[in-house]
């Protein structure tokens, strides 16, 4: 039972993180491989604040959100001057920088040793007694994130984001500051990812930099792609699928050392198959494509 709850909690956390990436990547077309960095900043903020300053969990989360949003804003400033492939590369660079800081600033982040003993969260001073209670917390926050994003993408603001994904030049010609919209999508996405990070930190109660590498960013992006870019339900389904997949492998009876490697191979194969046969993912309506052909530059005659 505990084991099943553990998987559900992880699905919940990854759903939050994948939905948050879906806003910039799926709906707006900003493919970022820095999402694990923002997720990590959220995790470290909660871990450090609760452990070193004794700040209660429910205050750590919003602090992480604000801090991550501020950092994402600073990153977006230079990154959004580039587009498509170049944008991916700038986010990649940022991801590497964050990992290096987490891994090397030993006095502050604990370096490769990580941060053990993160206090369990409590709600109104009452510690959450069990996995079941924590699952309820994750589910409640997950639903809140879903409702917030759902509202956002169905608003006039969301309509403009979807239009930017298809044809930036057209959107500009209709009087919209495309860069400001992209910035907003990127910053909101990063800020929501930090919530997932905070939940992860208090749930596992130990974090180290290896949880927030570029591989993790790619894993999150895989959830978005396989679930369906531009579909929030897809992100939840993708998280459920990719998180439970290695658990199924466990039951097949592969030794742990082999299972870990098979897992990586399986993710890779899935991603390739998805790109070849179902580029819109499980639930998405849009093929995942960094270069929609409509995005050509303004032509000259």
């Amino acid at each position: 039972m505990e084991y099943l709850l553990h998987i559900l909690i992880m699905i919940g956390i990854y759903s939050i993180v994948a939905m948050s990436l879906n806003l910039p990547a799926g709906f707006t077309g900003l493919i970022s491989v820095a999402h694990a960095a923002f997720y990590g900043i959220g995790a470290y903020t909660t871990a450090l604040l609760s452990l070193k300053a004794g700040i209660p969990f429910w205050l750590c989360l919003p602090t992480g959100v604000i801090l991550t949003a501020a950092i994402a804003f600073l990153i977006a400033w230079p990154s959004l001057r580039t587009r498509d492939d170049y944008f991916v590369i700038t986010t990649f660079a940022f991801q590497i920088i964050v990992f290096s800081i987490l891994n090397n600033w030993v006095s502050f982040t604990g370096g490769p040793m990580g941060i053990p003993g993160i206090p369990q969260p409590s709600v109104f001073g009452v510690p959450l007694p069990s996995h079941g209670a924590f699952l309820c917390l994750v589910a409640a926050i997950g639903i809140a994130v879903y409702l917030f994003l759902n509202r956002l993408i169905n608003s006039p603001f969301g309509r403009i984001l979807k239009a930017i994904r298809e044809d930036e030049i057209f959107v500009q010609s209709l009087g919209k500051n495309v860069t400001a919209y992209k910035m907003a999508a990127f910053v909101i996405g990063a800020a929501l990812a930090s919530i997932g990070g905070g939940l992860y930190a208090v749930y596992i109660s130990y974090i180290d930099p290896t949880s927030f590498t570029v591989m993790e960013s790619i894993f999150i992006l895989s959830i978005v792609i396989i679930g369906g870019a531009g579909s929030l339900k897809g992100s939840v389904a993708g998280a459920a699928f990719l998180v439970s997949l290695p658990e199924i492998l466990r039951f097949v009876g592969l030794p742990n050392a082999v299972a870990a490697n098979v897992r990586q191979i399986l993710y890779g194969v899935l991603l390739v198959l998805c790109m070849m046969y179902r580029p819109q993912g499980l639930f998405g309506e849009y093929a995942f494509n960094a270069h929609p052909k409509e995005r050509k530059e303004v032509e000259d005659a």
Binding site: K162, S173, V298, E299
Partner: peptide, 23 residues
């Protein structure tokens, strides 16, 4: 534009609505 520029996946009405409140 010389070539067509519309947001193909959005409805015709939504395309027009993109242009409201410029700036």
């Amino acid at each position: 534009f010389q070539n067509l520029r519309t947001i193909k996946k959005l409805s015709t009405l939504d395309n027009v609505m993109l242009a409201f409140n410029p700036g």
